[in-house]
């Protein structure tokens, strides 16, 4: 069963690597940001699977933190992007 969980976590990491293609290609910053958010969700799932595979329930706390804090980068991104857009329209 543990091998199954680890295999699923491996599959999720492969998903993250596939998503990196979007980060590298873009073209818009928003595309890259959304990809990073998706990694956050995938990472939570991967950490939960690892917690089962390694039989170490405390790892769930790391997943909890990613679920809670991934939104922080988006807040900063939204603020900066909308400010820049407004700034560019003014000139």
């Amino acid at each position: 069963m543990n091998t199954f969980f680890l295999g699923m976590a491996l599959f999720l990491v492969l998903n993250i690597l596939a998503g990196l293609w979007r980060v590298l290609k873009g073209p818009e910053p928003a595309d890259r940001m959304v990809a990073a958010q998706l990694f956050g969700t995938t990472g939570v799932a991967a950490l939960l699977l690892l917690a089962q595979a390694l039989e170490s329930p405390v790892i769930r706390n790391a997943a909890l933190l990613f679920a809670l804090l991934t939104v922080m980068a988006v807040l900063a991104f939204v603020r900066n992007t909308s400010y820049r857009d407004k700034h560019n329209n003014d000139h």
Binding site: I16, V23, R32, F39, A46
Partner: peptide, 12 residues
């Protein structure tokens, strides 16, 4: 964005 991803993989 890559650095944020790096942190995630590092945590794994």
């Amino acid at each position: 964005v890559l650095f944020i991803t790096f942190g995630l993989i590092l945590s794994l």
